[in-house]
Design a protein around this nucleic acid. Sequence first.
DNA 1: CCTGGATTGTTCGATGTCGAACAATACGGC
DNA 2: GCCGTATTGTTCGACATCGAACAATCCAGG
Lengths: 161, 161
Amino acid sequence: MAQEAEDDGAQTFLLTAGEAEATVGYKLRLAQILAFRAFEEKLSDRGRAPRYLGLLAIIRNHPGQPQSRLAEAVALRRSSLVTILDILAGEGLVERRPVRGDRRSNGIWLTKMGSRVVDELLAESRRHDAMLTEGLSQEEVGAALRALDRMILNMRNAEGG
Amino acid sequence: MAQEAEDDGAQTFLLTAGEAEATVGYKLRLAQILAFRAFEEKLSDRGRAPRYLGLLAIIRNHPGQPQSRLAEAVALRRSSLVTILDILAGEGLVERRPVRGDRRSNGIWLTKMGSRVVDELLAESRRHDAMLTEGLSQEEVGAALRALDRMILNMRNAEGG
DNA sequence: CCTGGATTGTTCGATGTCGAACAATACGGC
DNA sequence: GCCGTATTGTTCGACATCGAACAATCCAGG
């Protein structure tokens, strides 16, 4: 009966907080919040590109895709992407172009500046990854990546079904 | 030069989106968004407890902790936790009690109902985890958990220093 | 003691994401 | 060709989280 507050040192508390019941989902969340926040803070002088680097990288690898497809790729909503693309277009990183054969949709493309910014930020991103996975072996990192891929796949397959 | 939009099927696009440049940080984010969203949607009829299950579990394991300590444990800000605890207290899951010896801080405790709700939701959470990690072996899940722990540790050590 | 700096909870305005709606456009079955 | 249904981008109001400020309280050094 823990009717009395425990007297952990702060360190011990943080390390063991929720440990007993901690699930993959929970640790996933914690790690993501901390990693994402740190990355954004480190690059707070580069506009909003760091936050949307994933999106920008996808646009570079798959230029001309419609917004709806991009939204699905980064697991955000169609409606959220509107504002995001407005911002990125406002910063001159991205362009909406008409798509021949479908007057509903826009194709999204990187500008030259956008392409350059993505290059720079991907380098930063790799440095950040190194910090994030410090103390893990190549094999462990690889295994974690494969596990994450599988989780992403599992959740995508479950979506809307 | 990919000046022409590619003609992936939607499946292929999703699977390979950003694959070339994908970092641990990015996949972490994607997996977390999808997993968290699915968990919340599945339990949309249980108030706001699902979203804050991690917090509630920590309160159960470490009753009587001050808000600031809890905020750090779940990687949210002190100011954010105020609203959250207001809500959880409003739903009757949590109580603020005065702390003897420090009139600034509150100790946070689960109510009986809160404790019951946490039990139920932790069971749901384990089921959700099973879905999330489907297709991964016990060893792979264990390795992923250890990797996540390490990443959390790394980011915490880097914080503010 | 007592005074200056830290810590705690709180408020408040700013920003990001969401879901539900909508108009414009595409498309399949007839 | 025509019509019902899907899809696309968009707007709008709701909500979650943030950072900066603040008052109350604690505490360490003189």
